[in-house]
């Protein structure tokens, strides 16, 4: 039995019919073609599918699409207008905070969450907060640098 849901995705109102078993990540990837949100482990551990739901970073592989009914969803594609980069995105690119790039969208979304929750985050805090996002290529060194730099950029631009 399909259900109708209304939500906002990257600033646009979306009304769709979904199966009650449909995961939010599949809804985003398959129904809305927002494939920047990746699936790494399917079980809420690796963080590659991290998106923002009502401003909070969440893992989209363990939320049902129907649970997002009425919510405001932000994905990696909605962070900045076409051709521009959000400060956290720019920081990841500039500080070599990526190699294969598969974990990057989730890292960026989590990074923004860290910046908002801990505007003065030190390195230890960033490392702890990143524990739910796995990267297999880097040693996290440049990812941590990028989150720190992105946090500074965000704080500067918001102050």
């Amino acid at each position: 039995m399909a259900l109708s849901i209304n939500l906002t995705v990257n600033g646009e109102a979306v009304t769709k019919t979904v199966e009650p078993t449909c995961l939010l990540v599949d809804f985003l990837r398959d129904d809305l073609q927002l494939t920047g949100t990746h699936v790494g482990c399917d079980t809420s551990q690796c963080g590659a599918c991290t998106i923002h739901l009502d401003g909070q970073p969440v893992k989209a592989c363990t939320i049902l699409a129907v649970q997002a009914d009425g919510a405001e969803i932000l994905t990696i594609e909605g962070l900045a207008p076409e051709g521009e980069l959000h400060p956290m995105q720019a920081a990841f690119a500039q500080h070599h905070g990526l190699q294969c790039g598969f974990c990057t969208p989730g890292m960026v979304m989590t990074g923004i969450g860290i910046a908002r929750q801990h505007p003065d985050a030190d390195e230890a805090t960033i490392r702890r907060e990143l524990e739910g996002n796995l990267c297999r290529c880097t040693g996290y060194q440049n990812i941590v640098k990028a989150v720190a730099a992105g946090t500074r950029l965000m704080t500067d631009s918001e102050s």
């Binding site: 398959d30 494939t35 949100t37 990746h38 990696i76 990526l98 790039g101 990057t104 969208p105």
Partner: peptide, 22 residues
Amino acid sequence: ITHDSAHKHVAGAAFYVDDLPE
């Protein structure tokens, strides 16, 4: 210099096989 796809990776615009239009 940065990775050639860095600007795409941070934007979710670098396609992996599972991201190609089906």
